[in-house]
Computed example of a mutant assay.
Amino acid sequence: MLGGISIWQLLIVLGIIILIFGTKKLRNVGTDLGGAIKGFKKAVHEDDKDDEKKDVEPPHAKVSHEEPGNTYDVQAEENRKARNEEPK
């Protein structure tokens, strides 16, 4: 038993649904549902393949950027000037 619903109650509900919608309409709904599930599985499978391809690609080359020592420290210059200009 499924939560207090017997097999006979399920068959009665199924019979009412068939009478309301008809077998042709139910067959179309089943076909559409099956196609949607197949499409979903295919998309998930392709996504897994894309992830595998990304893992196989070689890493990008590392580029080093080195500048000569042409930087200018303004605060150090100001501190040096302040020490030189102090009254003695």
Rank of each mutant, 00 (worst) to 15 (best):
G4S: 08
T31P: 00
L19H: 13
K42Y: 07
L14Y: 06
Y72H: 09
L33D: 04
V13D: 07
G69V: 03
L2P: 02
L11H: 08
L26M: 00
F40M: 08
G39T: 08
G4Q: 03
E57L: 12
E85M: 15
E67A: 10
G22K: 01
K25H: 04
N70G: 03
E86G: 14
L11E: 13
K88L: 15
V63L: 10
T31F: 12
F40G: 02
I12N: 07
Q9H: 13
G4P: 00
G34M: 03
G39E: 07
V44K: 01
R83M: 15
N84D: 15
V56A: 12
S6N: 08
D48G: 06
A82D: 12
A36E: 08
H60D: 14
N79C: 10
I12S: 10
M1G: 09
Y72K: 01
K42T: 12
I5T: 11
V74T: 11
A61I: 13
R80V: 04
K38D: 15
H65V: 09
E85N: 14
G39C: 01
V44I: 14
E85C: 11
G15I: 01
T31R: 15
N79E: 15
K41P: 01
P87A: 11
I7F: 07
K54Y: 02
K62N: 14
K38N: 14
Y72I: 05
D55Q: 11
G30K: 03
G3S: 03
R80P: 01
Q9A: 09
P68N: 11
K53D: 01
K88F: 12
G34N: 06
T31M: 12
A43F: 00
P68S: 10
P68L: 14
E77W: 09
D48W: 02
L10H: 12
G3H: 01
G69S: 06
E78R: 15
D47H: 02
K53W: 00
L19N: 12
K88S: 14
P87F: 03
S64L: 12
K49M: 09
V56T: 10
E85R: 08
E52K: 08
A36M: 05
K38H: 14
G34Y: 02
I20D: 00
G35V: 06
I7D: 13
N70Q: 05
K49Y: 07
G30I: 01
F21Y: 08
K24W: 07
R27N: 05
E67I: 09
P59A: 00
H60F: 09
Q9T: 13
D51R: 15
E57T: 03
H60R: 12
K41L: 14
E67R: 09
H45M: 14
A82V: 03
E77M: 10
L2Y: 07
E46N: 10
D48T: 09
V29H: 09
Y72G: 00
I17D: 00
G39Y: 03
P59E: 01
E67S: 08
N84F: 12
K25G: 02
Q75I: 11
G34P: 00
E86I: 06
K25M: 09
K53Y: 01
N84M: 12
G15W: 05
H45Y: 15
E78T: 13
V56Q: 13
R80A: 08
K53H: 02
D50V: 02
K88Q: 15
I17S: 06
S6Y: 03
V44S: 03
